[in-house]
Simulated assay, not measured.
Amino acid sequence: MRKTERYGVKEHNSLWQIYKTVPFLKVCKNFIFIQLGRYTPSLKVKNWLYRTFLRMNIGQETALALMVMPDIMFPEKISIGRNSIIGYNTTILAHEYLINEYRLGDVMIGDEVMVGANCTILPGVTIGDGAIVSACTLVHEDVPAGVFVGGNPMKVIYTKEEMEQRQIQQK
């Protein structure tokens, strides 16, 4: 179960009421720095932009590949540990707007996590240390530390114990 806070809305759908939930100028500022970061080839500059202007928590030596899309409205709810890789064109969401409500949730990505290209990480998800997420995966629930997951719907491909056994066999 994802850890999100729910906020009910009346009248129109929640996305129509977006600027009642997040200031317009904040979204404009975030848009500018996210677009700069998405196309910046320097990982150090990208991490500095995201830490400084978006208030994202990004660990040392973490690499966000080209075109990674952090949440434009609530990037400060995203935390990525040290020495992790977020693959090309991955989207990390900390919000979801529905018809009768919107939901917000922190996204916690641990240390030494590998997220493949073209993944979508939904709000309120925790990805444990050392986990691997296969390309094109919809991360809709927590991922335990050390496991290898993939697919849509996401499922465990190898448990932590199976991953450790595979590493021993490869030596």
Results as ranks from 00 to 15, higher is better:
Glu76Arg: 09
Asp71Leu: 09
Val68Tyr: 00
Lys160Asp: 15
Val156Phe: 08
Ile34Thr: 06
Thr91Lys: 14
Ser14Met: 04
Met69Trp: 11
Val107Asn: 03
Asn100Cys: 05
Glu164Lys: 15
Ser84Pro: 08
Gly110Val: 02
Ile32Cys: 02
Asn47His: 03
Ile92Cys: 09
Glu162Gly: 06
Arg2Glu: 07
Glu61Cys: 06
Phe24Gly: 00
Tyr88Asp: 11
Pro70His: 12
His12Asn: 14
Asn118Glu: 06
Phe148Trp: 11
Gln167Ser: 12
Glu11Val: 03
Thr91Asn: 13
Val27Met: 12
Asn100Gly: 12
Ala131Asp: 09
Val113Gly: 03
Ile92Thr: 10
Asp129Thr: 07
Ala145Leu: 01
Pro123Ile: 05
Tyr39Ile: 09
Gln35Tyr: 10
Arg6Ile: 14
Gln60Glu: 14
Trp16Ser: 12
Asp129Val: 03
Pro41Thr: 11
Val147Leu: 06
Pro123Gly: 12
Ile80Pro: 09
Ala131Ser: 13
Val107Lys: 03
Leu98Ala: 13
Phe24Trp: 13
Leu93Trp: 02
Arg103Gln: 15
Glu76His: 14
Trp16Pro: 00
Val9Ser: 07
Leu122Cys: 05
Asp142Gly: 01
Thr21Leu: 06
Glu161His: 14
Val149Thr: 06
Asn30Thr: 01
Lys10Asp: 10
Val115Gly: 03
Ile85Pro: 01
